[in-house]
Write a protein that binds this DNA or RNA. Sequence first.
DNA 1: TGAAAATATGAAGGATCGTTCAGTTTGAGG
DNA 2: CCTCAAACTGAACGATCCTTCATATTTTCA
Lengths: 231, 231
Amino acid sequence: MLTSPPPHLSPRKRPRQARATVTLDAIFEATIQVLIADGPRRLTTTRVAERAGVSVGTMYQYFPHKQALFYALNERYLDLVADKVEATCRAQQGGSVRDMVKALVATYWAAKTERVEVTQALYKSVVELDNEAMIEAFACRVDRATATMFASAADAAFADLHTVVLTLLTSIFGTVRSVFERNLPMDEAEAVLRQLVVMCVAYLDAVKLPSDGGMAPDRSRTVEVPVHDAA
Amino acid sequence: MLTSPPPHLSPRKRPRQARATVTLDAIFEATIQVLIADGPRRLTTTRVAERAGVSVGTMYQYFPHKQALFYALNERYLDLVADKVEATCRAQQGGSVRDMVKALVATYWAAKTERVEVTQALYKSVVELDNEAMIEAFACRVDRATATMFASAADAAFADLHTVVLTLLTSIFGTVRSVFERNLPMDEAEAVLRQLVVMCVAYLDAVKLPSDGGMAPDRSRTVEVPVHDAA
DNA sequence: TGAAAATATGAAGGATCGTTCAGTTTGAGG
DNA sequence: CCTCAAACTGAACGATCCTTCATATTTTCA
């Protein structure tokens, strides 16, 4: 969590006892289930509470209002995805560009397909939520991890790494989202994904600096890419 | 409009007099404005009517309920975008792959940036709408036009045109959407767009069939790509 | 011009939903 | 076991909101 949520969206209190944690998890899971079953419009505080097996009042002990619940839910999810991407990036340090792209696409796709309905439900719950800051924070984490990874590539270097990474991630995330939106059948979806890897590799090959005949980039230590705050 | 909307979402009646047409346009425009100013959650039948300068009852003469209004609004918009893409595809018949990609990206981007707030507002209004069929219809039109265009390319041919087009469009549309979602500053957004073109061209170059030394594809007549219904 | 059709009005009904709070139950620590 | 804080309950309130319909106004056209 790079940035804490805006004050009006932050939780009321944190659970101190074990049962409270259980309750919170139940509320989150119930929210997802109601979102899937009834859609965002029929997602009601009462319905969520009922499904979670708690009373409405309990929800309001943790969240000042419905929006805060949504916010926390999405934040939880994005944090999880960011974790996975970061792990992948770490694992691919020093590898080939092709492997990096493959791993990146696979990781993101896996994270989104693990529970397809959840992903689609969350895409919808995002609406009407001041989630600019949240997305920004997510993007920041992923940008940084990806840039660090590509900076360590064994077989390529890039002049404008920032733009390259931005393009790559925007297109990967966007493409995956588009695949979900179009509701493509599995076989076509997977075909597009495979092609996406081809596309990204071809792109990186097109924009990489000409290799200096044998002088491989120094990989003796990990290059940390500085945080670049987009104003 | 390839498919008519599901019965429960179709308009109640069509305007027969001039003033009715004016009213309808006012309602659509008001919907957009309220969507932008107040967000989808505060978008109320009363508010829309008020902004449109008509009474609530008038709205219900044309739409059986609020959702139908949303549906019609989005359908209108998508039809417009599809029109533009089709026009571009027609204009690029027989050109080079690079020009085609450039034109495609430019057209889609222009359509979405013409009124940025509208685009973002509509992205949000789409939620919670049985718009699968609508998106499917849009995708169908655009897929077909794009496939026809690329089939006529002067400098390349493709083995699996269907998959290539699907990949290309999914990534272009997805990337544009992602750019909007991240709210990138204009200069970065445009940089990504330029890179996107590079990316697509590199991809097409990577998957095109090896040119048969001088035997250019027959461009004497336009090849119509058959409609491919995704079951 | 006059009647029929199309269009517009907006107060009122009915239903749902978010949120509160006074009171109860449960768990932790001494 | 006792006490206090933490956690939980759910009926009730107030605020909207969607939709209808009886009525009024405007346009068409014979």
